[in-house]
Structure formats: structure tokens, C-alpha cells
Deep mutational scan, measured.
Amino acid sequence: STHNELEKNRRAHLRLCLERLKVLIPLGPDCTRHTTLGLLNKAKAHIKKLE
């Protein structure tokens, strides 16, 4: 159905954006896999440090 396709595309776009963010944020050497929340929290902390 159309709704399923739209949802699939939305999730794919979100995944792509999170992958791009992961490249930009210093995550530390001990981190190989992150939850979305963990990645967003690290991004928030990094932005605050830059301010």
C-alpha cells in the first residue's frame, strides 16, 4: 500500500541522516554501535561544547 511505501521511505531517510550524523560526531574509540538516542545525545553534547 502507499502508506507502507511512505513509511519505508521515511525510515530509510532517517537511517541515512543518522549515518551522516555518526560521521560528523566524535564518538570515541570504544564505540562501535550506537542507539539512536545515544547518538543524538552525543551530538547534543558536541554542539554544546562548540558553543
Score class of each variant (00 low, 15 high):
S1C: 08
S1D: 04
S1A: 03
S1K: 11
S1G: 08
S1P: 05
S1T: 03
T2N: 13
T2K: 11
T2Q: 13
T2E: 09
T2I: 07
H3D: 12
H3V: 11
H3I: 06
H3C: 12
N4V: 05
N4W: 02
N4S: 11
N4T: 13
N4I: 15
N4Y: 03
N4R: 07
N4G: 08
N4P: 07
E5S: 08
E5F: 04
E5D: 11
E5M: 13
L6W: 03
L6G: 14
L6H: 15
L6D: 10
L6S: 13
L6F: 08
E7W: 11
E7A: 07
E7Q: 09
E7L: 10
K8N: 06
K8C: 07
K8M: 04
K8P: 04
K8V: 06
K8S: 06
K8T: 05
K8Q: 04
R10A: 12
R10L: 10
R10D: 03
R10W: 13
R10P: 15
R10V: 10
R11F: 05
R11M: 07
R11C: 07
R11W: 07
A12L: 02
A12Y: 00
A12V: 05
A12D: 05
A12T: 13
H13Y: 11
H13S: 10
H13L: 12
H13K: 14
H13G: 13
L14F: 13
L14G: 07
L14M: 08
L14D: 07
L14C: 06
L14Q: 04
L14R: 04
L14I: 12
L14V: 06
R15Y: 00
R15L: 05
R15F: 07
R15N: 01
R15E: 04
R15I: 02
R15G: 05
R15C: 01
L16T: 13
L16A: 11
L16G: 14
L16N: 10
C17W: 12
C17A: 08
C17F: 12
C17S: 02
C17P: 08
C17G: 05
L18Q: 00
L18D: 02
L18N: 00
L18I: 06
L18T: 01
L18F: 11
L18S: 04
L18P: 03
E19G: 06
E19S: 10
E19A: 08
E19K: 04
E19M: 02
E19L: 01
E19R: 04
R20C: 01
R20W: 00
R20P: 01
R20V: 01
R20H: 01
R20E: 00
R20Y: 00
R20T: 05
L21F: 05
L21R: 00
L21C: 04
L21D: 00
L21E: 00
L21I: 09
K22E: 00
K22P: 01
K22D: 01
K22Y: 00
K22W: 00
V23C: 15
V23E: 13
V23D: 09
V23G: 15
L24K: 06
L24H: 09
L24Y: 08
L24N: 01
L24W: 14
L24F: 07
L24P: 00
L24D: 00
L24E: 01
I25T: 03
I25W: 15
I25C: 12
I25P: 06
I25N: 14
P26R: 14
P26F: 03
P26T: 15
P26I: 00
P26K: 15
P26S: 14
P26V: 02
L27R: 15
L27T: 12
L27F: 11
L27H: 09
L27P: 15
L27V: 11
L27C: 03
L27I: 11
G28Y: 13
G28F: 12
G28A: 07
G28T: 14
P29K: 15
P29F: 15
P29L: 15
P29E: 06
P29W: 15
P29N: 10
P29D: 05
D30K: 14
D30Q: 13
D30G: 14
D30H: 12
D30M: 13
D30L: 14
D30R: 14
C31N: 14
C31D: 09
C31W: 14
C31V: 13
C31Y: 09
C31L: 11
C31R: 14
C31F: 11
C31M: 10
C31E: 08
T32C: 14
T32I: 13
T32L: 15
R33I: 02
R33K: 10
R33D: 02
R33H: 07
R33M: 05
H34W: 12
H34P: 06
H34K: 15
H34E: 07
H34D: 04
H34V: 12
H34Q: 11
H34A: 12
T35N: 12
T35W: 14
T35V: 12
T35E: 04
T35L: 11
T35P: 10
T36M: 14
T36Q: 08
T36V: 15
T36L: 10
T36Y: 06
L37D: 05
L37H: 05
L37Y: 09
L37G: 10
L37A: 11
L37V: 11
L37T: 12
L37M: 09
L37C: 07
G38L: 06
G38A: 11
G38F: 03
G38W: 07
G38I: 04
G38R: 11
G38S: 10
G38E: 08
G38T: 10
G38D: 07
G38M: 13
G38V: 07
L39M: 08
L39D: 00
L39V: 07
L39R: 00
L40R: 02
L40E: 01
L40K: 01
L40A: 03
L40Q: 00
L40M: 10
N41I: 02
N41W: 01
N41D: 06
N41M: 03
N41V: 02
N41L: 01
K42V: 03
K42A: 06
K42Y: 02
A43C: 09
A43S: 02
A43F: 09
A43H: 01
A43N: 03
A43K: 00
A43P: 04
A43Y: 00
K44C: 04
K44N: 01
K44W: 05
A45K: 11
A45R: 09
A45M: 07
A45I: 12
A45Y: 09
A45P: 02
H46G: 13
H46C: 10
H46R: 11
H46T: 13
H46A: 13
I47T: 03
I47M: 07
I47Y: 09
I47R: 01
I47S: 02
I47F: 14
K48D: 02
K48V: 01
K48M: 02
K48C: 06
K48W: 06
K48G: 04
K48R: 07
K49E: 00
K49F: 11
K49P: 02
K49G: 04
K49N: 03
K49I: 01
K49C: 02
L50G: 06
L50A: 03
L50T: 04
L50C: 07
L50S: 04
L50D: 05
E51D: 08
E51K: 15
E51M: 15
E51P: 10
E51C: 14
E51T: 15
E51Y: 15
E51L: 09
E51I: 04
